[in-house]
Structures are given as structure tokens and as C-alpha cells.
Design a protein around this nucleic acid. Structure first.
Length: 879
RNA sequence: GGGCGAUUAACUCAGCGGGAGAGUGCCUCCUUUACACGGAGGAAGUCGGGGGUUCGAAUCCCUCAUCGCCCACCA
């Protein structure tokens, strides 16, 4: 056993400790027939990712839950792995190619995919290594990836099943197109942002004047799309335009003749009440176009540059096209006016480019049939959200769910398992690769698109366990227990796992969903690497240790939906680790002559700390069950620091020095309480607790080598003892009052004082019994406890726990100071008493308040009365 | 346009129906043999404003204000 240095050094402990956990095999899931396992699947971080504060928080939560369950003896498994992250990974590889002046088209699809795999093998385990640095107890031996061969088969299986059931279909629709990523996006992958924009009013001349008018003015936020206009729409009930419905307008700049149609969609109150309609570039216009049989003219290519359809404007970037169109309209006097207008513009969630609504062929999943059962399981309480308020968010989304565009025009990902026959035109979905058409034997081409990354992530809880095969893992661990994640992927991921789990694995994927707070920086802004507004968990672990970071995060994890990251919580957590270290060091330094034995609540102090330990165990148990991590962390901190260190260790010092049976009893209780506290602390602070725990003496030959495998404390509530707690409260109050006197007169620590305590009843009994403790803790030489104690002439005074205290300080007492302080205390006590007296004199209170509340207030009232009496007397004596 | 969250000590936050709390910071004293990443003592708040319910409200309800987040195809 190595000597413990004076300060805890995380760096000296963490690496070696983690290795010992790994080699000890503690992380591996063990399946035992007939047992109820505890399984969590990690939200797979992107292979492109590195640990950020959200990961740090989320994975601390999961590790806390898993470690605690493991200690209860339940078979546990925390499934770890990464997500192939289609767009993100493809971007990385494309960037790498770009440095060599190449595009993915230069290398070709096959080679490009190879490069992606190479990238994944090179960089993909960065984040897993960072999880290890945090101490996360994942099952690393069995790491998963959303592009593993088995996983790929699971994805194809799901797609083909959906295809066969008609739940996935191909359609030409307006989708969200990212011109930079060159792919379609689903609706929830588009981030809407309000921007200050303009509303242009454009004059569209009528071909023939109608009822005295020769034009219609339309309002638009996107003038360039007029190049694809195929009609103008007005509301049928709008009298202003009654006469022009059916007329023909001549599209400015291009001269195309297009009709004026009447459509209910148009809001007469907005703009001019006349809308230009571009069916190929706006979902609403698409609908209008469908209803009126208008042509759909695609004016942009995949890079959002104008096509040949735009005639003289061909080949322009969309924003350049806007500029040119506006200029030309102005030149021709067709621009009526321009208003400032705020509206929402969609951006790609991956690269933040403005998304283009674009008409194209895509694959969609029909979501309504999948959503229904997924709503039901939440409604029936089979899947629970924590905090509960997120169920409402979930329902809103699920009840208004729209079809999911799942095809992506990328190369990295799960290629859609659909094959087209060149000969007969047959379209076949197949789990196994096809070379020839099953209908005519002709040659087939596979659909070039890949699936949305989230399509494969949705299968994570069961695909990682071996589905579609009926593996023992699947049977044993599925459904899993808890899914902990951030709120921004409730729709993208959580809802889809529930839907697919029910559909394909035949059950809910997990029973409890923890939506943890989002970590913002100290200014309340989103942490962002590119903006430099982030904090790096690795730096934090360097500064505060992994345990310090974890505990500091747990302290901040409350029911609130945001965390403004407070680094000082990590500082105090590092200090806390040091406190644990030194308290343990003290215990270990005082074990000479120790013989193992059970804890014994023989003395008041022992009964008290064991009672407090029992209360702590209850609080930790209840808090973890309710996922109230902040409360658990606070309970642990307060117990260990404010009770165990501040009082119990101090109370034990005398008996340790006394030797004999008193020393042995104190040693046993110190070891027991420390051991139990380390167990309770372990899920949140795994490294330091295990390091210390291994140093503790034990007579148990079966004792585990690591605290990870030690038993979670149970049955500590047997130590609960209200009498002992009340007694120690008296000691604490009296000691604190004497210390306050000492501080007031700045007495040296070694300078002893005498104390006359005017006490009777229970207080007198307790003080008599605990006199040695009071003397040791308050620096008292002679302690006189007497019902008739009188104040010596030159004495400082205090009232604590209903006991009058006199501290003779010959020549030191500042009577002015004493009077001032006593008077102030008296005022406060009187104010409290007045309030209480009024309350107790209120018939409504006496009649309606709970009996124990009235009783408690009566007791408090008489205590306050006694205090007021005593303070009054003391004030008189100080005259 | 809907929905959610926040507003408590200088700062970051707990508490969410019966005596206003913590951490950090601040002030005083202390290198006392577990710990100065410490010990002892202290100062500091009309719990965002206004109504209401209740014997009793930081806590429940309504309303206003400010900040933040999500959802929503009004050009």
C-alpha cells in the first residue's frame, strides 16, 4: 500500500485505475439466466465527434446509473458505439480531398467510400477514448458501429419490410435541399431562423386589360423564383380580383404567359392579396400548382444555380440571380415598392447553408401508422419521460407527424436496397444484393441514394443486440432500461427508436427517457467550438480531475432545462475530492491496533453519525430512483463534509487518543462510515472512491478487488436515531456559540476558556454526557453545567439551544459590544416570537393547520420565549 | 401564431404550501499534527412587478414584464 500524499492527485490515480477496471473485466455484460438485467445503450456519438460538455454530462448520468445498478449485483451492460454520421463524415473526407484539389467525383464512389472507412478507422475511436478518460463503465469489448455488417443487414431488413408493407414509397415532392451538402434533408433537419428580409412588390402586366386594370401586383420574399412562376393566385372571395381570375398575365423578364387562378390558400390580408406561384420551389405553391394543373418549372440545379429554364439568367447562383432579377425589374419600372419583412429562413443543420425547397424524386416513410402505437405506449406509461413535461412535446410532434424523407444524395451511408431493372422497369427491394431482375432476369441498378443517418440510428437499441437474428443478447437485454439524451433529438432520434422498436423488435426500446439539461456557457450561449464559446471537458478533467468534473456536473443537474455552466462548481468538487482524500487519510493514519468488527452506535456521537448515514443512504436511493442527480450530489457533499468531517471526525479524535476499547470502537465506526460513504459516492466519483476503498482494511476474504464490484449499501436505515440527532444538535449549537465568543474576542486557538452553562432538563443531561466533546471542540478548560449558574462579572454571554452560556474573559470583555450583539439577537428573537404568537393566536390556523404543524410551532414558541427571557436577563446583567 | 422554461444573497444556482439555503466571491481571525484544494466566525436577499386562492405563498392560480428555447408551409 502506497503512502497517501497530502493532496489528491487525479492524474496519479485515474489512468492506472481505469486499466485495472478494464483488466478486471468489470465492464463486460454478464448474462445470467433468470435475472433481470440493467441495460443502457449509449446515444452513439458521431465518429467525427469529440467529447463536448453535452457528452460529458450525458455520459456521467448514464455511468452513475449503471455503476449503482452494478453494485446492487444486477447484471448490467452499457452498450457503447458510434454513429457513421453520413453528412458529417462525408464532409470530413471531402475536406481532406479538397486539400489535394479533388472532389468526391474525381475519386469515384467506390474509392470514396473506402476513404470514409479509412477515416473511420483512423479517427473513429477518439471519442470512445475520451469516454474512458471520464471513467465511463461501458462494455468496451463489444463496441458497435452503425455500419457494422450485421447492422447494415438490420437496416436493409427494416427498409425492405417497410417497402413490402407499403410504408416506404418513392415520390416526386418538394423537399429541403442543401446545395452545399448536395442532398435532401428531412423537415426536422432544417433549422428555421428569423431573418430581417425584404418583401418585394412586383407588377405583373395583364396580357389584355380586364375591367379597366392592366396589371396585378404580387408580393414576394424571393423575387428570383419568379423565373419559375407558372401562375398567379388570388383568393376566390377577394372582390378586388374577382374580374381577373382566369385572365392571363405576362411574366416579366421572361415573357411567359401564365394564368390567374383562384385558390383558398391565398390570404387576402397579406401583401397585395395576389401571390406569384412557383410550384417547383415552394411547398405551398406546389399544392396550388397541383390543384390548378400548372406546370412545375425547376429553375435551380443541385448547386442552386439557375438552369436553362431561366433563359438569360442561366448559370447564376441563387443570390446573384435575386440581385439581377430585382435590378432588371427596377429598370423596367416593374418594382412597385420594397418593405422590410421579418421571416423564417431554413438552414441546413449540418452546415448552416440556406436550404432550398426543391422538387425531386425521394424516398419517404409513411409515419402515421408507425406513430400510433408509439403514442400509445407513452400514454399507457410504458415509456416515461423525465422530467415529465417532455411527454407533451413528444405528443405534439407525434400527433402531427409528417412523412419522413429518408433518401440522401450521399455516398457514405446505407445504400437504399432497391434495384431498378433496365429491361422491364421493375423496382425491387431486397435484403440481399441483386444482380439480375427477379421478374425478367434483366440487369439491375441499385438506387444510388443512401438512407438518412437517423434511419439507422432509430434501430440502435435492438440492432446493437443482434437483431434481426434472435440472439441471446436481444432476448436478455431488450427492452433496455434508460435512454438518456439531450432534448434536441427527441424527434430526430428518441421518437423514431420508439416507433421502430415497437414495429420491428416487438417491444418498447426502453422504459425511461431522461432528457437532461442542455449545457450552455457562462453567458447562457450555445457552446460552440467554431465560435470559441465552448469549454473542453478534457481541459476540465485536466484541471479538476475526472471525478471533479463529473461531480461538478452532477451538482448542476437539476430539473431545469438549461445549465449555464458554472466552473466554480467543478472547483468545489475538486476540493471535495481533496476533502474525501484527506478525511480518508486521517482514518487510515489512525488504524494502529485496528481489529475488524461491526459498527456500534454505543456513544451519542456514533449513534448520530450512523443515523445521518442512514438518512444519506435514503436520500441517495430516492434521488437516483427519481433521476434527481443534483440533489443526490448535494446530499453526499453535505453529509461527507459538514457532518462526517466537520463533526464526526472531530468528535472521534478524543477517543482515538484515549486508546483501548474506546479507540477500537471509534476506529470501527470511522471505517464503517467511510466505507459506506465511499460506496454511495462511487457512481459519481468512481476513481478516488475506488482508490481509497482498496486501502481500507477488511477481514472479508471474499471482498471484491474493486469498489465497482462491491455491494451497494443496504439496510442503513436501521441506524436512524432521532434522539441521537437531537442530542448532537445541542452539542453543535453550544460549541458553535462558544466558538463565536472566541472569534469575537480573537482568542488564540490554544487559549482555553471556562464556560458556565445555565442548563436544565434534557439539555443539561446531554451537556453532562458530552462534556468532553464540548470541551474539546470549543476549546474549553472548565465546563460548569448548573441550573443555577450565575454570570461572573467579566463574561461574554450567549444563548444556544435554550442554554445560557457565560464565558469569563477577565479584562477582555467589551460590554458595549456584548450589549449590541445581545440586543440585536433579542430583536430578532422577539420579531420571530411576535410572528409566531400572532400565528398561534389565529383561530383559523389552530382549526385548519395540521396538528403536528401546530405542535411544532407551539414548541418553537416556548423555546423562543425562553430565549427572549434569557437574552433579556443577559442584557440587564450587562448594564 | 402556439407551447415550454427561467426570473431567490455580488455571481452560478438549490428549495416548489408551514422557521429564506448552498457553492464561489467578500470581511475578520488562524500555518491547531487529515486537509490552506483547509479550519473557525461573520456580512450579504421586501424570493421580477401586480392581483388572487389559503389559517398560512419564494412555493398554487391569474396577469404583466424581461430573457431563453422549441414547434408552426402565410407568399
Amino acid at each position: 500500500m502506497s503512502e497517501m500524499p497530502k493532496a489528491y492527485d487525479p492524474g496519479a490515480v485515474e489512468g492506472a485505475m481505469f486499466s485495472s477496471w478494464l483488466s478486471g473485466g468489470y465492464f463486460a455484460g454478464r448474462m445470467a439466466e433468470g435475472t433481470d438485467p440493467y441495460c443502457i445503450v449509449i446515444p452513439p456519438p458521431n465518429v467525427t465527434g469529440s467529447l463536448h460538455m453535452g457528452h460529458a454530462l450525458n455520459n456521467t448520468i448514464q455511468d452513475v446509473l449503471v455503476r449503482r445498478q452494478r453494485m446492487t449485483g444486477r447484471p448490467t451492460r452499457w452498450v457503447v458505439g458510434t454513429d457513421h454520421a453520413g453528412i458529417a463524415t462525408q464532409n470530413k473526407v471531402e475536406q481532406k480531398l479538397a486539400k489535394q484539389g479533388l472532389s468526391r467525383y474525381d475519386v469515384g464512389r467506390e474509392k470514396f467510400v473506402e476513404l470514409c472507412w479509412a477515416w473511420r478507422h483512423e479517427h473513429g475511436s477518439t471519442i470512445v477514448g475520451q469516454l474512458k478518460a471520464m471513467g465511463c463503465s461501458c462494455d468496451y469489448a463489444d463496441e458497435r458501429f452503425t455500419m457494422d455488417p450485421g447492422y447494415q443487414r438490420a437496416v436493409r431488413e427494416v427498409f425492405v419490410k417497410l417497402f413490402d408493407e407499403g410504408l416506404v414509397y418513392k415520390g416526386k415532392r418538394i423537399i429541403n435541399w442543401c446545395p452545399r451538402c448536395s442532398t435532401a434533408l428531412s423537415d426536422i433537419e432544417v433549422e428555421h431562423e428569423d431573418v430581417d428580409a425584404k418583401l418585394w412588390y412586383v407588377r405583373y402586366p395583364l396580357k389584355e386589360p380586364v375591367a379597366g386594370r392592366d396589371h396585378v401586383v404580387v408580393a414576394t420574399t424571393r423575387p428570383e423564383t419568379m423565373l419559375g412562376d407558372t401562375c398567379v393566385a388570388v383568393n376566390p372571395a377577394d372582390d378586388r380580383y374577382k374580374d381577373v381570375v382566369g385572365a392571363t398575365v405576362v411574366l416579366p423578364l421572361l415573357g411567359r404567359e401564365i394564368p390567374v387562378v383562384a385558390d383558398e390558400y391565398v390570404d387576402p390580408a397579406f401583401g397585395t392579396g395576389a401571390v406569384k406561384v412557383t410550384p417547383a420551389h415552394d411547398p405551398n405553391d406546389f399544392e396550388i400548382g397541383e390543384r390548378h394543373g400548372c406546370a412545375k418549372i425547376n429553375i435551380f440545379d443541385a448547386d442552386a444555380r439557375t438552369t436553362a429554364e431561366t433563359g438569360p439568367y442561366e448559370g447564376l447562383d441563387r443570390f446573384e440571380a435575386r440581385k439581377r432579377v430585382v435590378e432588371d425589374l427596377e429598370k423596367q419600372g416593374l418594382l412597385v415598392k420594397v418593405d422590410e419583412h421579418m421571416h423564417a429562413v431554413g438552414h441546413c443543420y449540418r452546415c448552416h447553408t440556406v436550404v432550398e425547397p426543391w422538387l425531386s424524386d425521394q424516398w419517404f416513410v409513411d409515419m402515421k401508422p408507425l406513430a400510433k402505437p408509439a403514442i400509445d405506449v407513452v400514454r399507457e406509461g410504458k415509456v416515461r419521460f423525465h422530467p415529465q413535461r417532455w411527454t407533451g412535446v413528444y405528443y405534439d410532434w407525434m400527433e402531427n407527424i409528417r412523412d419522413w424523407c429518408v433518401s440522401r444524395q450521399l455516398w457514405w451511408g446505407h445504400q437504399i436496397p432497391v434495384y431498378y431493372c433496365d429491361a422491364c422497369g421493375e423496382m425491387t427491394a431486397s435484403v440481399d444484393h441483386l444482380d439480375v431482375c427477379p421478374r425478367c432476369g434483366g440487369s439491375v441498378r441499385q438506387d444510388p441514394d443512401v438512407l438518412d443517418t437517423w434511419f439507422s440510428s432509430a434501430l440502435w437499441p435492438f440492432a446493437t443486440l443482434g437483431w434481426p437474428d434472435s440472439t441471446p443478447e436481444l432476448a436478455y437485454y431488450y427492452p433496455t432500461e434508460v435512454l438518456s439524451t439531450a432534448r434536441d433529438i427527441i424527434f430526430l432520434w428518441v421518437s423514431r427508436m420508439i416507433m421502430q422498436g415497437l414495429r420491428f423488435a416487438g417491444d418498447i426500446p426502453f422504459s425511461d427517457v431522461i432528457i437532461h439539461p442542455t449545457v450552455f456557457n457562462a453567458e447562457g450561449k450555445r457552446m460552440s467550438k467554431s465560435l470559441g464559446t465552448g469549454v473542453d471537458p478534457l481541459d476540465l478533467m485536466e484541471k479538476y480531475g475526472a471525478d471533479g468534473m463529473r461531480f461538478g456536473l452532477m451538482l448542476q443537474t437539476t430539473g431545469s432545462q438549461d445549465i449555464k455552466f458554472a466552473e466554480e462548481k467543478l472547483l468545489s468538487s475538486r476540493n471535495f475530492a481533496n476533502k474525501i482524500w484527506n478525511a480518508s487519510r486521517f482514518v487510515l493514519m489512525n488504524l494502529d491496533g485496528y481489529v475488524a468488527g461491526p459498527p456500534a452506535p454505543d456513544t451519542v456521537a456514533d449513534a448520530w453519525i450512523l443515523s445521518r448515514l442512514g438518512a444519506l443512504a435514503d436520500a441517495v436511493e430516492a434521488g437516483l430512483d427519481a433521476y434527481e442527480f443534483g440533489e443526490v450530489a448535494r446530499a453526499l457533499y453535505d453529509f461527507f463534509w459538514s457532518e462526517f468531517c466537520d463533526w464526526y471526525i472531530e468528535l472521534a479524535k478524543g477517543r482515538l487518543a484515549a486508546g483501548g476499547s474506546a479507540r477500537l470502537a471509534a476506529q470501527r465506526n470511522l471505517v464503517f462510515v467511510l466505507d459506506s460513504a465511499l460506496r454511495l459516492l462511487h457512481p459519481m466519483m468512481p476513481f478516488i472512491t475506488d482508490d481509497i476503498w482498496r486501502r481500507l482494511p477488511s477481514s472479508d476474504p471474499e471482498r471484491a478487488e474493486s469498489l465497482m464490484a462491491a455491494a451497494w449499501p443496504t439496510g442503513l436505515e436501521r441506524f436512524r436515531n432521532p434522539d441521537a440527532e437531537a442530542s448532537v444538535a445541542i452539542v453543535q449549537e453550544v460549541v458553535t456559540a462558544v466558538r463565536a465568543v472566541r472569534a469575537r474576542y480573537q482568542l488564540a486557538p490554544r487559549a482555553k476558556v471556562d464556560v458556565f452553562a445555565k442548563a436544565s432538563g434534557a439539555e443539561a443531561v446531554v451537556l453532562e454526557g458530552e462534556a468532553d466533546h464540548v470541551r474539546a471542540l470549543a476549546g474549553v478548560d472548565v465546563l460548569v453545567i448548573d441550573t443555577k449558574a450565575v454570570k461572573p462579572a467579566h463574561a461574554a454571554v450567549a444563548v444556544a439551544a435554550g442554554v445560557e452560556l457565560f464565558v469569563p474573559l477577565a479584562g477582555l470583555v467589551d460590554f458595549e459590544k456584548e450589549r449590541g450583539r445581545v440586543a440585536k439577537e433579542l430583536d430578532a428573537a422577539r420579531a420571530d416570537l411576535d410572528k409566531l404568537t400572532r400565528k398561534l393566536g389565529n383561530p383559523g390556523f389552530l382549526a385548519k393547520a395540521a396538528a403536528e404543524v401546530v405542535e411544532k410551532d407551539r414548541n418553537r414558541s416556548s423555546e423562543l420565549q425562553a430565549t427572549v427571557t434569557k437574552l433579556t436577563a443577559q442584557l440587564a446583567e450587562l448594564e
